[in-house]
Nucleic acid binder design. Structure first.
Length: 413
RNA sequence: GUGGCUGUAGCUCAGUUGGUUAGAGCACCAGGUUGUGGACCUGGGGGUCGUGGGUUCAAGUCCCAUCAGCCACCCCA
């Protein structure tokens, strides 16, 4: 029996869920296109090295969440845990550096070996937007604006909060990191076990700890703002000015940090309280060092990723399937004529349901059950007489000439 | 990976202090009546009670293990 169920953390997307899923992705793709972002795609797996180098050897994703394997005992391959690394790799291997700036929209499945929860699967789907080759704050502003607009059109924006922070440039970050590590080391006996581990890997994360003892220490910790150099400080101001100009509301959250190594300057996150602990719905930031880390020519970049499942859960208006027009032969002798009529309507662009069996009563029941907008009933002599009966389930029925049928049905399209 | 809660038909749930062939509603199928659907009537299929052990004369009901989901931590989309 164990073989006949999905692998832990995976699930089947049946038609109803798939409509919600597609609604999210289609909306995102459409909005992104209005900003000039074109869809692209990369393989679902890459050499493990691509993720190790871009995400960082010590990141949680790399150390414990990757699906890594060696097909036929050969090279090490990893199912992508996120999209940016692959896009950056494609940018380098495709020699795209002379086409900057580049704007990409992306969507597809991602894989992380985590303990499943609602809104957190081992195979899940993301939408991504990336802007490469722009080092100006206006790039950051546009990226955030695309995300906000997608959330707005999905009608979930007002149920999220945009949190914003700066991680500074590498120089500022190094300086702050050193000070921070020093500070926490002097209190290492009071630090929680989790944070003790973070001290080596990603000390900035301690700022976001939920442990009560940690929070007390964090309250007295040095502030990143005091260690930002002038360039970084000014950069952040200009990003904020751009968001203000667009009327995009945000809260500066000095404790907002990113788990992946490649981020610099702007970091942001649209969060919600509707999804429990999985509150991050759309998050990203600037990654100016990534391309270089992967072996390409230094190229600035910024982007975000959003969880399709999480967004789909937040969308309250579940998209409905299109109501078909049912074609029903009134008697067995009309079956082939019904077949031809259905074919004709489909060629004209109508969504048509044609049953495979049953008498008139049974077919009508079915038409009603599948929520048909109308039924076209065809008698044996219908085609010969050039008439069909169109029955609207709400208003009744009427007999119309064959030539007028399409016009009559147009209202249901 | 840690801690906790849960697990009975497709779905939502009942199942008394362990005791004869495990139930309901909805859904599904068939028939009837509407005689071209929706309502209604009748009947039917479907569960090795997550799985595997154990205790017992007897377990859905007790014990252990395991799997899965959910919640929190962790992490993140």
């Amino acid at each position: 029996m164990t073989a006949v169920k999905p692998v832990r953390g995976t699930y089947d997307i049946l038609p109803e869920a798939m409509r919600a899923h597609r609604h999210v992705v289609d909306t995102a793709r459409t909005v992104a296109a209005r900003y000039g972002y074109d869809e692209m795609s990369t393989p679902v797996f890459e050499f493990t090295e691509v993720f190790k180098r871009s995400l960082g050897d010590t990141s949680d994703v790399v150390t414990k969440e990757m699906y890594t394997f060696s097909p036929k005992g050969g090279e090490q391959i990893t199912l992508r845990p996120e999209a940016t690394a692959g896009i950056a790799r494609a940018f380098i291997s495709g020699g795209l550096a002379n086409q900057l700036p580049l704007k990409f929209f992306y969507t597809g499945p991602m894989f992380r070996y985590e303990r499943p929860q609602k809104g957190r699967q081992r195979q899940f789907h993301q939408i991504d937007v990336e802007l490469l080759g722009v080092a100006e704050p206006l790039g950051d502003v546009e990226i955030v604006a695309v995300g906000a607009q997608i959330l707005r059109e999905l009608d979930v924006l007002e149920r999220t909060t945009l949190e914003l922070n700066t991680l500074g440039d590498p120089e500022s970050r190094r300086a702050y990191r050193a000070v921070l590590v020093n500070y926490f080391k002097s209190y290492s006996n009071r630090l929680s076990e989790d944070s003790l581990a973070r001290l080596d890997r990603n000390p900035l994360r301690i700022l976001d700890s939920k442990d009560e003892g940690d929070r007390q220490l964090v309250a007295g910790a040095p502030l990143f703002g005091d260690y930002l150099n002038e360039y970084s400080r000014d950069y952040f101001e200009r990003v904020r000015a751009g968001l203000d100009a667009l009327g995009i509301a945000y809260e500066v959250n000095p404790r907002l940090v990113r788990g992946l190594d490649y981020y610099t300057h702007t970091a942001f996150e649209f969060t919600t309280r509707e999804l429990g602990a999985q509150g991050a719905v759309l998050a990203g930031g600037r990654y100016d060092g990534l391309i270089e880390t992967l072996g390409g020519r230094a190229t600035p970049g910024i982007g975000w990723a959003a969880g399709v499942e999480r967004l789909a859960m937040m969308v309250s208006e579940k998209p409905k399937a299109k109501r078909p027009i049912a074609v029903v032969p009134a008697e067995a002798e009309a079956e082939l004529d019904a077949l031809k009529l259905a074919q004709r309507l489909r060629r004209e662009g109508f969504t048509v349901d044609l049953g495979f069996s049953g008498n008139l009563s049974k077919r009508m029941k079915r038409a009603s059950k599948i929520n048909a907008a109308a039924v076209v009933i065809l008698r044996e002599d219908g085609l010969a007489r050039d008439v069909v009966t169109v029955r609207d389930f709400e208003t009744g029925e009427e007999e119309v000439p064959l030539t007028a049928m399409a016009d009559r049905l147009a209202r249901y399209q």
